[in-house]
Amino acid sequence: MPDSTNPPNPPTPPNPPTSADVARLAGVSRATVSYVLNNAEAVRISEPTRRKVRAAAEELGYVPHAAARSLRAGHTRIVLLPTSHVPAGPLYSTFLNELQWALRRLDYTVVQYGSLGLTGDEAVRAWAELRPVAVISLGETALSPHNVDTLKRAGARAVLTLGPERVAGAHALVMDQAEVGALAAAHLAGRGRRRIGVVVPEEPGLDLFSGPRLAGARTVPEVEVTPLALAYTEESAAALAARWGELGLDGVFAYNDEYAVLLMRALLDAGVRVPEDVAVMGADDLLIGRLVRPRLSSVRIEMPSGEWLAGLVDRAVRVPSAMAERYDLTGAAAVPREST
């Protein structure tokens, strides 16, 4: 009968396979294994040999040791995307997905890091612990020149920031959200609308976009702008539509197409005619805006491809001095349809 007071020792886990094991099974040198599995482009290796090495690694379950690889290279292959929320809707999400796929094809490891609740200094210290080779700050954490220096001292070869201003030591990727708001307001003004509501989403993480879009709308002198808080729920839209008469607005820029469709449906349900009583404008020019009736006027935003930005990150890592200080990422144009 086993002694319950002295349970048997758990079995010792087997040692993980090494590159030497892969080399023996494939009949090649360890250096060849390293070249193949690290996608080294400077060394010419035949395709049959590459297939043989990969097959041996697959059979043994061998995975290169990231820490050892980083020590040899002098840096990691981590590109850090600090983000606390999923921002801005389908257009932006598609862009981020393309960026991550393109970086992976360039042999980078993309790490999304949730920094919710951390201050700038706290967040940067947490990012630096991962020793990323590059950081793409999406703007949720305001960086200072000291923060950029901290990241570079920890091994980051490139720090790219998304926002209207460049931080010293970093490269600025400028997305002019104010232009989006100005174009929407100018389009509504051109339709004779003078008292315009601008939707400001209540969802966290969207103020990076909604704040500049509101500010841009306010630059159009012909219109009077009223901010409108709106959560992305049918209940919130219905409550806003129910008091539309007392607001006295004849146009609305609803932040983006998703919020525009949500609000337009609530307005129509409340008996507010679109566009006769109120003209409705969205942004991002999403498919959903062309499917609803009346078809939604929008601001089309020309985003760069994720592949382009991945190439920019790669160049910044390899030759930081060759980078420009500022890159303008977007252009925009109003697209008139039936809702205005």
Rank of each mutant, 00 (worst) to 15 (best):
residue 4 S to F: 15
residue 14 P to Y: 02
residue 17 P to K: 02
residue 18 T to S: 12
residue 20 A to I: 09
residue 23 A to S: 13
residue 23 A to V: 13
residue 24 R to L: 12
residue 27 G to Q: 11
residue 29 S to F: 11
residue 30 R to H: 10
residue 38 N to W: 09
residue 41 E to L: 12
residue 42 A to M: 08
residue 46 S to A: 15
residue 46 S to F: 09
residue 46 S to T: 14
residue 47 E to P: 04
residue 53 V to D: 03
residue 54 R to W: 06
residue 55 A to K: 06
residue 57 A to I: 05
residue 58 E to K: 09
residue 59 E to A: 09
residue 63 V to D: 00
residue 65 H to D: 07
residue 65 H to A: 01
residue 68 A to N: 00
residue 70 S to N: 06
residue 70 S to L: 01
residue 74 G to D: 06
residue 76 T to S: 13
residue 81 L to Y: 00
residue 82 P to W: 03
residue 85 H to C: 12
residue 85 H to E: 14
residue 96 L to N: 02
residue 96 L to A: 05
residue 100 Q to C: 09
residue 101 W to Y: 07
residue 103 L to A: 06
residue 107 D to E: 14
residue 107 D to H: 11
residue 111 V to P: 00
residue 111 V to D: 04
residue 111 V to E: 01
residue 113 Y to H: 10
residue 114 G to N: 12
residue 116 L to D: 02
residue 117 G to T: 02
residue 118 L to V: 03
residue 122 E to R: 07
residue 132 P to N: 05
residue 132 P to V: 06
residue 135 V to R: 01
residue 146 H to P: 00
residue 147 N to L: 00
residue 150 T to E: 03
residue 150 T to K: 00
residue 153 R to E: 04
residue 153 R to I: 00
residue 156 A to W: 00
residue 166 R to Q: 11
residue 167 V to Y: 05
residue 167 V to K: 00
residue 169 G to R: 04
residue 169 G to C: 03
residue 170 A to C: 10
residue 177 Q to S: 09
residue 179 E to C: 14
residue 187 H to C: 08
residue 189 A to D: 14
residue 195 R to C: 10
residue 197 G to T: 11
residue 201 P to A: 14
residue 201 P to D: 11
residue 203 E to R: 14
residue 204 P to D: 13
residue 205 G to L: 06
residue 206 L to M: 13
residue 206 L to S: 01
residue 212 P to Q: 05
residue 214 L to V: 04
residue 215 A to L: 09
residue 218 R to Q: 15
residue 220 V to P: 08
residue 221 P to S: 14
residue 225 V to L: 10
residue 226 T to K: 04
residue 226 T to S: 12
residue 227 P to T: 08
residue 228 L to E: 06
residue 229 A to L: 12
residue 233 T to R: 13
residue 233 T to C: 12
residue 234 E to K: 07
residue 235 E to N: 15
residue 235 E to D: 15
residue 244 W to D: 07
residue 244 W to N: 07
residue 249 L to T: 07
residue 251 G to L: 09
residue 251 G to T: 14
residue 251 G to H: 09
residue 253 F to Q: 09
residue 260 A to C: 06
residue 261 V to L: 01
residue 263 L to D: 05
residue 263 L to M: 04
residue 265 R to C: 02
residue 266 A to H: 02
residue 268 L to W: 01
residue 268 L to K: 04
residue 272 V to Q: 04
residue 275 P to D: 05
residue 278 V to A: 04
residue 278 V to F: 08
residue 278 V to L: 06
residue 286 L to Y: 01
residue 286 L to I: 04
residue 288 I to H: 01
residue 290 R to K: 09
residue 297 S to W: 07
residue 302 E to C: 13
residue 309 L to V: 15
residue 311 G to Q: 11
residue 312 L to E: 07
residue 313 V to I: 15
residue 319 V to C: 15
residue 321 S to C: 11
residue 322 A to K: 11
residue 325 E to M: 09
residue 325 E to W: 12
residue 334 A to R: 01
residue 338 E to H: 04
residue 338 E to G: 02
